[in-house]
Every structure is written in C-alpha cells, then in structure tokens.
Design a protein around this nucleic acid. Structure first.
Length: 254
DNA sequence: ATGGCCTTGGTACAAGGA
C-alpha cells in the first residue's frame, strides 16, 4: 500500500491539484496539512467521488489536518490528548492494524520567540503521547509537515541555515527523540540522491534553483520498518501553476 | 541588498508561513 503526506497550503485552493494527484499517484492513505478551512467547508463529496473516505480536523484560516483513506478508519483522535491547543494540528486514526498519525508541526517562526517555545512544548507533548500510542499500536506511521530539517544533508545551504528555524539544535534534538521512541525516517532507510527536498520558498525562484529543505517526513515504527519498500518525494505537483510550496512524500508498504 | 511570494480576511494591508 502507498501512504503519503502533503502540506497543500489551503485545500480550497489546491483541491483540483489534489484530485488530479490522487488519480495519478493513487495513494491508499494521504495525510493532509494546512487545510486552512473549517470542517463545514471540507470537500468531503469531491473526495468521496475520487474514491476516498476522509476524516478531518479543520480550523478557520490557519492549520487544519485530514486523513484520506481507501477504507474507513476507526478510533479517530484529534489533537494531542491532554495538551491544550488552540490549533488544529494532529489527526490520528486506525486502519486495520495500522495506526496513522498525521501532524502539522508548529513552524516556530524564530528561535527564542514565543512561537518557538510553543513548538518545543508541542514537541514534548507529542513525544509523551506517541510513547503511549506506540505501546497500544506497535504498527504506527507518523507523518506530516514536521517543520524540522533533521540534518544538514536535508538543507540546501547548511551554512546560511545554521541555527535558523527548522535547523536549530533544539528542533533536531526533538526529531532524534522521536526516533528514540522506535521510529525510523523512511526516507533514510534507502540510498537517496543528494539534494532532495520537500519544501521550497515561493520567493527567489527557489524551486527552479532547488533551494529547499526536507521538512516533510514519514516515520515508521520498528514493527513496520522491514515492510517499507520505498520512500520518495514527488516533485511533480510543485511544478503546477499555483502550487503548494510543499511536495508530497510517499512510502510503499508491503 | 536582513527582501523577494502566497493565503486569508476582507476590501487595505497585516499576520503567518518557512
């Protein structure tokens, strides 16, 4: 089965591109981020027409996440339990034996800012919750827009980005702490060509110059690691007119 | 060159993104 994550940066704007991409990529599961719409505006009918069940956790203007699946899910969790949060950033659900967790991690804006402190608290809460989730659901996939470039190899210009948001030691320590729970960055389970990224700034012709970051990830638990056949980033949708600034990331799971 | 672009809300421009 194919499992994907994509930050669409407004589902209202990107719906035609999403529907097109679903027909070409044919994923079985898609985690979406940055819907930027409320649940009543979620395009459920169009997605059902495309052959998907959907559960969403929306919000006006900002954030918002969803899971699209070929088969219906159960046990839907919205946001991190016992973590007070005004933002809609997490949706989790069970698909047979799989536990799917889609997340839109906080951006953090700038180190030492209030938003950065929120990002750190949010990552603490996520890890605490996932530790419990993994005990209950050993076959777990954590995917989404992490807003963290795990290593310098995931950064187009590590010198320019050193210490900047997405690349700070604090964020990278949090990323490694997620791996310590028994999760694996599916992308790094395979030999990959250099300079593969999942996000490019809209400005400065960054995509054309491949000045990007790898900040969108799919992490799989120990129990799934040996079943991952591939992990790729689909740059095609970033070449559309009016694209999202993020590209989808996909894994193939046996 | 410490900015460039895109989205939302709302109808001018600020906030947020990354």
């Amino acid at each position: 089965m194919k499992i994907a994550t994509w930050n669409v940066n407004s589902l209202a704007v990107r719906l035609p591109q999403l529907l097109q991409w679903l027909t070409t990529a044919r994923p079985d599961v898609v985690a979406l981020q940055e819907l930027k719409l409320t649940d009543d505006k979620f395009p459920l009918a169009e997605l059902q027409e495309a052959g998907y069940h959907a559960v969403c956790h929306g919000q006006k203007t900002y954030n918002g996440v969803a899971l699209l699946t070929r088969e219906p899910v159960t046990d839907v969790t919205r946001n991190i339990p016992e973590f007070e949060d005004d933002h809609a950033r997490v949706i989790a659900a069970s698909l047979g034996p799989l536990r799917l967790v889609g997340g839109y991690f906080p951006n953090g804006q700038a180190p030492a800012s209030d938003k950065f402190a929120y990002k750190m608290r949010w990552l603490d809460a996520l890890r605490g919750w996932l530790k419990h989730e993994l005990q209950q659901h050993p076959r777990l996939v954590l995917m989404g827009d992490f807003n963290i470039a795990p290593e310098d190899v995931d950064v187009c210009d590590p010198v320019a980005w050193a210490g900047q948001i997405h690349c700070t030691d604090e964020e990278r320590t949090h990323f490694r702490a997620l791996l310590t729970l028994g999760l694996h960055d599916a992308f790094r389970l395979f030999e990959q060509p250099p300079r593969l990224y999942s996000w490019w700034d809209y400005r400065m012709l960054a995509f054309q110059k491949n000045q990007g970051l790898r900040i969108d990830h799919i992490l799989v638990s120990d129990a799934l690691k040996l079943r991952v056949r591939s992990c790729s980033i689909d740059r095609q949708p970033r070449k559309n007119e009016r694209p999202s600034d993020h590209a989808p990331v996909l894994i193939e799971l046996d």
